[in-house]
């Protein structure tokens, strides 16, 4: 058997190994995405009972953007704030687990993942009790005069962002931990040998080496948070509705399929563009 033969066979094996995953993606991602894109271009004057004609109505996108500008911007803002908060909370936590936890490391990791053992919905409903008007948190803040006498936490933006931060925190902690844990401690030793103080070592060695985890964590938090609607639905009011709530309502209640699909496509496109710009600027091309 010649070397060329072996080469061809390995190459075929490579494609065969890809096949199940590819097939899955085609059936459950590509086809629905095309269907969604097609729906977003239907004639907006159609209806369920008369049917929809394909008219390539690109104006649907413009209509979606202008009608639902506020919830679109709100989604991006809430998701951004939640991502920053999650980062601030997660970095020290991941750092502690990676470098300081010692024999508690595994236990702490399990505790980070533990919330996943119960349903997303139940965890979000629990926040309804935590933040309720007569609950401990709200009354304490009122005593401290941080919250006015008639003030409340539940049914405000604060509650929605809190819920988002909480729900997506593990997605920030885990990649950060993974990249911090991989850091070779000798590099930090070396930097202190070269007279860098703790802060400088962190800035010049630890932080740059944890960048892949930081980028992955922020993406894993921001993307689902921007599309989330459960937190706004349960912890907010219509004044806090995000674009996910709008899409849900358009699809199920108003039966305006073209507008709903157009909103979904715009959201997807916006996220893809933002992620590409972000990844390019962060300079971690190994990630994608």
């Amino acid at each position: 058997m010649s070397a060329a033969d072996t080469g061809r066979r390995t190459s075929r094996t490579g494609y065969l190994l890809l096949l199940p995953g590819l097939l899955w993606l085609v059936v459950f991602f590509l086809v629905p995405t095309i269907q969604l894109a097609a729906t977003s271009l239907y004639d907006p004057s159609g209806s369920l009972d008369s049917g929809y004609a394909m008219t390539w109505s690109f104006s649907n996108y413009w209509d979606a953007l202008s009608t639902f500008r506020a919830p679109f911007l709100r989604s991006l803002l809430y998701a951004a704030v939640a991502t920053v908060l999650a980062l601030v909370l997660a970095y020290p936590l991941a750092y502690a687990i990676a470098f300081k936890a010692g024999r508690w490391k595994n236990l702490m990791l399990v505790l980070v993942i533990a919330p996943f053992f119960t349903s997303f919905l139940v965890r979000t409903l629990a926040w309804k009790s935590i933040l309720s008007d007569n609950g401990f948190v709200a009354t304490t803040l009122q005593v401290l005069h941080i919250l006015g006498p008639g003030g409340r936490l539940l049914a405000t933006s604060v509650a929605v962002v809190t819920g988002l931060t909480y729900n997506f925190l593990p997605f920030m902690v885990l990649p950060l931990y993974a990249s911090l844990e991989k850091i070779d401690l000798r590099l930090i030793e070396a930097s202190s040998d070269l007279y860098a103080d703790a802060l400088t070592s962190f800035r010049k060695v630890t932080l740059p080496l944890s960048m892949p985890g930081l980028v992955a964590g922020t993406l894993l938090t921001f993307i689902p948070a921007a599309g989330d609607y459960i937190n706004a639905e349960l912890l907010g009011t219509p004044r806090q509705y995000m674009i996910g709530n709008v899409i849900d309502n358009l699809f199920l209640v108003q039966l305006d399929y073209p507008a709903a699909a157009a909103c979904s496509v715009v959201l997807m496109a916006a996220i893809v563009v933002m992620v590409l710009v972000y990844v390019r600027r962060a300079g971690t091309e190994e990630l994608v």
Partner: peptide, 13 residues
């Protein structure tokens, strides 16, 4: 082909 077949929907009535 999927894209083509997905062009428009029939009346649901």
């Amino acid at each position: 082909p999927t894209l083509l077949s997905a062009c428009g929907t029939k009346a649901a009535k």
